[in-house]
Simulated assay, not measured.
Amino acid sequence: MAAWLPFALTAGMVCFLIFALAYAFLYATYRTRALLLWGCGWFCHSLRNLAILWSVHDGPKTALLITEQSLVVCTSAFLLLGSLSFAGLRADRRLFWTLGAVLAWIPLAVGLSVPPPWFYVPTYFLFAAAQIVNGWVLLRHGPRAGVGRLVACWALIVWGLHHLDYPFLRHVAWFAPWGFTIGAALSLLAALAVIMLYFERLQHDLRISEERFRRLFNTHKAPMLLVAPGSGHILDANQGATEFYGYTREELQGFTVAHLNMLPLEELETLRREIMTGARNHFVCPHRLKNGAIRQVEVHSSPVEIQGRTVLFSI
C-alpha cells in the first residue's frame, strides 16, 4: 500500500497546481480579491505536496519538515481569507495571532524535539478548524440557488474533519496512501466546487442587476429604447417612449431606429459604430413622432449587456 504514496502525492501536486493556475486566470479576468487568495491557497497546497514527496524520496529532513508544516498554515490562511473576502467579511485580528503562534510553534517544536503526534497537532488542528469555518462561511453567505455552495461547503468541512486524524495516522504505513488520497479527493472537489460557487454568485448578482435595470427601464418617465447594434431594430421601449412618440410598445418593437430618426442611413451607421467603440455617446438629431411632428431630440446612448447580449441603451 505504501507504494501508492508517491503517486498520490504527485497526482495531487499537479492537480492543485492546475487549480492554482485556473484561479490565477479567473483573477486576471474578474479582478476579485477572493480568487487571488484562493489561488494562493491552492498553490501553497501544491508546494506542500511537493515538500512531502521530496521527503518521501530523500528521507526526513528538518528543513523540509518546517517548510511542509509552514505551508499547511499558509494554505489554511489563504483559503479562509479568500472565503471571508468572498462573503464580504473582515478577518478578526485573533486569526492572525493564531496563525503567527502556530507558525512560531513549528521551529520551536523542532528545536525541542517534540515527538509525533504532538508535533503535528497545532498545524493540523488549525487546518481542520480553518476549513470547517471556511465551509460554514460559504454555506452561510453563498447564493442559495445552485449546487456549488452545498458541495463546496460540505467538501471543505469533511476535508477539515479528515485532517483531525492526520497527527495520529500520518505515520501509519498502510494508512498514509489512503489518507492522502482521500484528502486529495476532498480538496480537489472543494477547489472545483468553489469555482462553481463563484460563477453562481456572478449569475445571481447579474440577475439582480438586470432586475433592477428592468424596473428602472419600465418605470422611468424619460423615453428609453433598447436597440440591436447591428440592425438598428428596436428591441424594447419603455412607457416614457410610448408617450413621447405616440406609438404603442408593440409598434415600436416592429420598427428600426431609422423609422424614428430622420438622419440619413449613412450617418446612422456612423453613429452606431462610434457608440459601440465609445468614441461618442451623446448627440442631437431630429425624430419624427406618430402624428408627423418633428422634434429635436438629445440622445445619450451606450452599449450595455443584458442576458448575455450587447444592446444599445438609448435615453
Rank of each mutant, 00 (worst) to 15 (best):
A130W: 02
Q69G: 07
E266V: 13
I306C: 01
P229M: 08
W118V: 09
R309D: 09
L235R: 15
L161H: 04
C44L: 03
G12Q: 05
L9F: 06
W97L: 14
S85K: 09
L35M: 03
T277V: 04
I306G: 01
S314V: 05
I157T: 09
L5D: 01
E269K: 13
A228E: 15
L235F: 09
R149V: 03
L161Y: 04
P6T: 08
R280S: 07
T310R: 12
G41K: 00
P143A: 08
N49L: 12
F213W: 15
L268Q: 14
T242Y: 02
G82V: 07
W136L: 07
H171S: 08
L206P: 00
R272N: 05
A2L: 14
G160Q: 03
T219Q: 11
I315V: 12
S314Y: 06
S46V: 08
F119Q: 10
F78K: 00
Y30K: 14
G146W: 05
L271S: 02
Q203T: 09
I234Q: 00
R214S: 09
G148K: 02
L95I: 10
E269T: 12
L53D: 02
L268E: 15
L112C: 06
L26I: 07
V137C: 03
T277W: 04
F86L: 06
M262E: 15
L35C: 01
R295H: 10
H171R: 10
I157Q: 00
D205N: 11
D92C: 07
V299P: 01
